[in-house]
Nucleic acid binder design. Sequence first.
RNA 1: CGGGGUGUAGCGCAGAGGGCAGCGCGCCGCGUUUGGGACGCGGAGGUCGACGGUUCAAGUCCGUCCACCCCGACCA
Length: 591
Amino acid sequence: MRMSKLFSQTLREAPADAEIPSHRLLVRAGYIRQLAAGIFTAMPLAHRSLTKIEDIMREEIDAIGGQEMSMPVIHPAEIWKRTGRWSKVGAEMGRFKDRNGRDMALAMTHEEAVVDIVKDEIQSYRQLPILIYHIQTKWRDDPRPRAGLIRVREFTMKDSYSLDRDWEGLDRQYRAHYQAYFKIFQRCALPVIAVESDVGMMGGNMAHEFMYLTPVGEDTLLLCEACGYKANRQIAEFQKEKPPQEEEKPLEKVETPDAKTIKDLTELLDIPDRKTSKVVFMMATLLREGEEIEQLVFAIVRGDMELNETKLANAIQAKALRPAEEEEIQAVGAVPGYASPIGLDRVLVVVDDLIPESPNMVAGANEEEYHYLNVNYGRDYEADVVADIAAAGDEDPCPQCGAPLHEVRGIEVGNIFKLGTWYSEAVGATYQDKDSQEKPIVMGSYGIGSGRLLASIVEEYHDEYGLMLPISVAPYEVHLVSLGGFTEEDEVQAVAESVYERLKAGGVEVLFDDRDESPGVKFNDADLIGVPIRLTVGARSLEEGGVEMKLRDEQERTLISEGDVVERVQETIDRLHQEIMDNVKPQTLEE
RNA sequence: CGGGGUGUAGCGCAGAGGGCAGCGCGCCGCGUUUGGGACGCGGAGGUCGACGGUUCAAGUCCGUCCACCCCGACCA
């Protein structure tokens, strides 16, 4: 490709609203342009990189038996109503009516489309297992797109769906994906870890997220270096130290002026914060007899801990959770700052499982300026649900080995889910087994977003001058810079043209800077675009005997005689590919 | 949805006591220059986010709305 014809320009300055490196550099280098919040155009450079990423995904999913297909991106509402997700999913789903007034949806994921086709195509156990996948556009109307390609609304995703007779089969396909995903990310040279994750609204009973660790990530993870425990904070567990047992003392009401926070209270009463319990007020959307209701929830954790909203939502099967408004809290007779479940009804009380083990706690008296001492769970109040709802944090003891956990941030670049039979049962996607019984198909789903993956790779591989893409995902293998091109009969330009033609003939992907620009402009653009191998043809290099080669991530320059260019470049390309493949190591899911 | 911020040329920004809409980069033409974002001369490019109001006169003052960014809520 000649840069004089390339449909994109580099920018000397990044748009003011781009903050993280991958966003700034991808825009500056001319890979992407923004159309609206969370909606981007992939210019030719990004398109080439994305295609390479997608081809890697194709190869690895094909290798575990995947069959690529394409599915509709516009769905009739019916298939979403059949699984109940038409109403279960909120504004995140794009909806519209067709000309006849029928409800339609923009696909945010394809479980519905899969089970709809599967229920008709699969009849017999002889047809299973199956692995299908597609690489297509999905739309999720995220309330807050941000950070360039990291979090967008319209995106391309590789989604696989596994279909099995039983859970053993699902387990095999899940493990196969676990390994294939590591291989995909390793081939993209992106370091990732797999963490256990929440199964969310997709249902199912096991899920892993593949995380690229970076401070710009939005997910918080807890890792144990001692035993290897890794989990998303949303589900991370930790060992809770039980307090020493004590005699239950009688309930006592004390005056606590201006003690609205745990900190005020512990200072006033001179007690540690783990002797207090704190109430977090949430409004939960619950399904009761098919009706959606909003219910005030008192979520109670020990004063030294934080509430984990995901755990709470799972504990009470809430469809949605939001912080309660002051009026909603007062409506049930509670007093914010001095609240407790003692003597209240009309609230759903959920206590962390450590609370029943904690005697003689301090809690609010539901009266301005008063708290109770020696509150004992069971004697003074009871909960509707007792569950682990406390958030694990930095330095908390690992649930497996007790060593301190470490909190890090990550970007979720892929995920794998054991869906089970939830979708197949909802639509009657069954097969007839050997024993003539109709059984629901057991499903899994497995996704990787290609744009987010590209952005993560850029986060990992860049410097102050631009991208430094691994050769497996770079838009071109070689960036050929001609420092000639100013006169008709220019030897430098003639050599560069010849090198360009010969490299192309040799199957090398070349971006040829044939523009009439100054050397500084060309070198800076080459650094910005970040192609791994740079070749320079200039009067100086010709004088010294040939063409200069430099790798984007190294300072060293080597001179190649003009006749050897194709061979030497191909060797280098092979070497760079090989270096990436040398780091591809099988990763097996351990129980 | 709550809090904060920003909308002026392709990009980065100035202009704010109301009175001809500017600068740098980029772009076009001519010439010089050529190993790390060159220089000279000449040029093109704007419904100043939108609508409404005040005024002789609005980029500037007032109101409403919209878009985008950041924090939070949210995130299969």
